[in-house]
Design a protein around this nucleic acid. Sequence first.
DNA 1: TCCATAGTTCATATATTTGCGAACTAATAA
DNA 2: TTATTAGTTCGCAAATATATGAACTATGGA
Lengths: 109, 109
Amino acid sequence: MDNKEIYLLHANICKALGHAIRIEIIDTLQNNEMSFGEILEKIGGPKSSLSQHLSSMATKGILAQRKEGLSVYYKLSSEKVAIACRIMREVLIENMKKHQNLINNLQNN
Amino acid sequence: MDNKEIYLLHANICKALGHAIRIEIIDTLQNNEMSFGEILEKIGGPKSSLSQHLSSMATKGILAQRKEGLSVYYKLSSEKVAIACRIMREVLIENMKKHQNLINNLQNN
DNA sequence: TCCATAGTTCATATATTTGCGAACTAATAA
DNA sequence: TTATTAGTTCGCAAATATATGAACTATGGA
């Protein structure tokens, strides 16, 4: 397998983190398995949109899907995704703090 | 700050990981500061494309940029991005292994 | 069987991202 | 000054991704 091809696959799985709804899904499923309906109730928005995000994440192997009666239950298939997600949030927070410091310095000088 | 707004910002910074070239940039800068030209030599492709990826990452606060003479040097502004990136690669590898196992099982039955 | 509920898929309009050559800018050298 | 080198920005076409209502499917009652 070519180097470039690995980068493509790697980027492709990382794209799962690149949308607010999908981040919220990861957050929501952090320690729970939840049905589609429960997730929808928590996150809101049109159901078709949520369904598509969930299924794209399942296709990438990030979520596991299980059907029981009328409900479909989703959970994270690995804790690692939630960890990576949390680390990126820390990066965000750090950057926001740096930004805030800049503003403070401007105001005090 | 609204919840939804945080998810938007969070997703936005995660988008930095969502492209093969940007993943390769993170990989390349893992332990080095490098000039634009050096990065270009390693990664290849048109320079305008590389420049745009680098600058979008710098704008998001993921890369730090420093100009010296004619050259512009880039480095990761936090080790955390490389860590998150590595964790996502592990998720990819694990998924590929599961997939491979499925294929093996099909062949042996 | 017929209906209701829970989700998925489809169709398609809109928005965002990417790709890349050409033009441009900044810094140094001749 | 003029030329050269190193990068950035612009312009715009092509490719991807997102949004969302309507139609559809599957399951479990009545």
